[in-house]
Amino acid sequence: MALQWLRFILASLFMLAGLITLFAATLGLFRFHYVLDRIHVAAKCDTFGVLLTFASLMVILGLQAASLKLLLIIVLIWLANPVAGHLIAYMEALTNPRLKDNCEVIPYDPD
């Protein structure tokens, strides 16, 4: 009984935190205006929010095949989502000629 309560509380905590994070991501996507701000919010909050909500679902499901599938989805999203965000930001930095008007630019020095 105590274990079930613990599970429920853990799952609801994870789910609440995940929903708040995803809400922050959506809000930031609408409220920010510049590309780099928006992609910052979308990449970070989306990735973390999905981790939290799926962790909550895994706690609810317990140890079975479905929760392993959820784990696979988390791995896929943690691989793919930051790379997609990086690519959008990289494209913006490559193609925007007036980058300095919008943000601070530190010249990249490979050495």
Partner: peptide
């Protein structure tokens, strides 16, 4: 064919 992006290439070789 834009400049090859190492991060994207590594992720793609995995995925």
């Amino acid at each position: 064919d834009p400049r090859p992006n190492v991060i994207l290439m590594q992720t793609a070789s995995l995925l």
